[in-house]
Amino acid sequence: MYIMVREIEGSLLRLKFIRDEGRKIAIDTIKEIGAPKTDPSDRVDQFMEYVTIPPESMDPAGVVWKLEHILDIRDDRFKDEIKLMAPAADATNVNNLENTLEAAAALNVIYKVIRHFYILGKKTLSLYIIMQIQMLLPLIMREAEAYASALKAFSHGQPIGDGAGALVAAKLMHGHRKKKIEKDCVVAKVPLDGRTAYVIKAEGPGGNVGKPGEAIKHVIEEYDGKIATVIMIDAALKLEGEKPGAVAEGIGAAIGGPGTEAYKIEESILKYKIPINAVIIKEDIGDAVSPMRKEIFDATEEAVARVNRLIKEKTKEGDAVIIAGIGNTIGVGQ
């Protein structure tokens, strides 16, 4: 038990170091791009302690919309806070700062949870409390280190691994006229092998995931459900042993997050019985939130080729298709 407590203590110190570094990076970035009139440290500390209370799900009917509403309020509140902290920041930088502060807040939560179990274990001298936290530590440390890399990427506005899907969409829509659609998304009408592709992605280059579910629903409704297929491209977690940047295909709504967007997509395609295809780019949690690896960047070319092949195989000339690149579009334009 003594050895386990010592091990947790060592990791806790490292977590504290990472958390403090994260806070420092966030404050420095706000000072650098936000030109605040007062010291933002206190506000950053308050931000790191924000909590989001999920809606009650005892009666699950309508919980998706309740959750979406809570998340929208949270997003608006975060943006307002950032505008107060960094008045000189433009829209792109506000998004990047929001992501930076969210990563710093995540590190704070990880540190506090581990500290809670460490103190609780020592107070109660419970072997089981100490053991369970010690056994999970390697995975927790990995996640914390991933967030630390994310923080640096967000503060500099560098593209991250999670943005692979958005990058595929950006490559497909580049050079075509874009239209703003729903919340923080853009759509472009792209001719592809005699078909019309409506390519959707979150609006970059600021750190933003948008509401692709809402955007897909909007396009489907706009064309009365006359869509031959929906193709979604997203980054997905790989298993150990798989190569980062491996591309795979499948069926279903390839989108992560709290589930509200996946729900909207599934509802829309069900209404009009539209087939849905997925192209995923595999990466681990560290790569997903760190600056984009070359292997993942290279994989986006293969994903573009797969999308083109899927369109040729699954649709016929004259059809309309939706291609949605999912993920955080930080550092990716369109």
Binding site: P159, H174, P205, G331, V332, Q334
Partner: peptide, 10 residues
């Protein structure tokens, strides 16, 4: 090397 303000397709 990357510089602040760089983004893909800029």
């Amino acid at each position: 090397n990357f510089e602040r303000g760089d983004y893909i397709l800029k």
